[in-house]
């Protein structure tokens, strides 16, 4: 069993730190091979050492300029670093060798989405879908694109397709949870986000959202739910307009009662919000 094979396995089972440790054991010749540099690049990417990942990818590309995997790795890493020009250059270089590859096209669409070029990303994804209609990666990108466009109905429909294909897709459950949270459907949000946490518990923010969805269902938190559902600014404007309108119409008693009620709701909402924050901590 060579260290390179073991490192590849460790990377595959989500142990990038161990993979890096194993790669350090390689002799100088093997450590400089394209295969080793690619594995090390991915291991660095998975541990969040983006600069090191870029360094490995570029070092590998010097030895093998036509290596598609290294171009792909470079593009992903540069996207995460925020250097979209470099990410685009890398993925276009990869597409120069395999223009119809669905995964490469999906990555290109990600770069475009990150840069706000949603129309162009849609066209690229259409090409990717035509190339491989069953690609889950393409489906995931289509979900993201629909969400970024604000088309929540399409995002939800596509996510159900994703889950039909892979019932344990973390992304799928997470997306359905977020969409349910946005429309105020807390029980569904709790179930979906909870499932996403069960499948991948390392993301605290998802776990916090699941907890919030759980806590917010209690009756005490109805003012928070109310503001979340209709938006704080909009609700304020409507309330103030109503109070002023009643006053202008000469209904001062009604305006006073409404004003007082509004103040109580605001104070309650503030107290409930603070308590929610405390509970989530």
């Amino acid at each position: 069993m060579s260290s390179l094979q073991l490192a590849a396995h460790l990377l595959n089972v989500g142990r990038p730190e161990d993979a890096l440790r194993e790669l350090q054991r390689l002799g100088p010749d093997e450590a400089g091979s394209v295969n080793a540099l690619c594995l090390r690049g991915y291991a660095h990417l998975n541990t969040g050492s983006l600069d090191a990942a870029v360094h490995d990818a570029r070092a590998g590309l010097q030895a093998a300029p036509d290596d598609i995997e290294l171009h792909y790795l470079l593009s992903i890493t540069e996207t995460q670093r925020g250097d979209l020009a470099a990410a685009e250059a890398a993925i276009l270089a990869a597409l120069g060798y395999a223009a119809d590859d669905a995964e490469l096209l999906a990555q290109y669409s990600r770069v475009l989405m990150r840069g706000g070029q949603l129309e162009k990303a849609g066209r690229v994804l259409a090409a990717a879908g035509a190339s491989d209609p069953r690609s889950q990666e393409v489906l995931r990108c289509r979900i993201d694109l629909a969400y970024l466009r604000g088309d929540t109905a399409e995002a939800e429909g596509l996510t159900h397709l994703l889950l039909a294909d892979d019932a344990e897709s973390v992304r799928g459950h997470q997306m359905l949870g977020v969409l349910a949270l946005e429309r105020g459907d807390l029980p569904v949000a709790e179930t979906r986000l909870g499932e996403a946490v069960r499948l991948d518990p390392v993301h605290d923010e998802v776990a916090d959202s699941a907890r919030a969805a759980q806590i917010l269902q209690r009756p005490y938190y109805w003012p928070v739910r109310f503001f979340d559902r209709f938006g704080a600014a909009q609700t304020w404007v409507v309330a103030i307009c109503l109070i002023l309108g009643l006053r202008a119409a000469g209904l001062t008693v009604a305006a006073g009662i409404l004003g007082l009620t509004w103040m109580i709701v605001c104070a309650w909402s503030w107290a409930a919000g603070s308590r929610l924050e405390h509970q989530l901590r």
Binding site: E195, V197, R198, P201, V202, H203, D204, A207, R211
Partner: peptide, 9 residues
């Protein structure tokens, strides 16, 4: 992470 996991799994 264990808290997240044990809470939902």
């Amino acid at each position: 992470t264990a808290r997240n996991y044990t809470e939902f799994a």
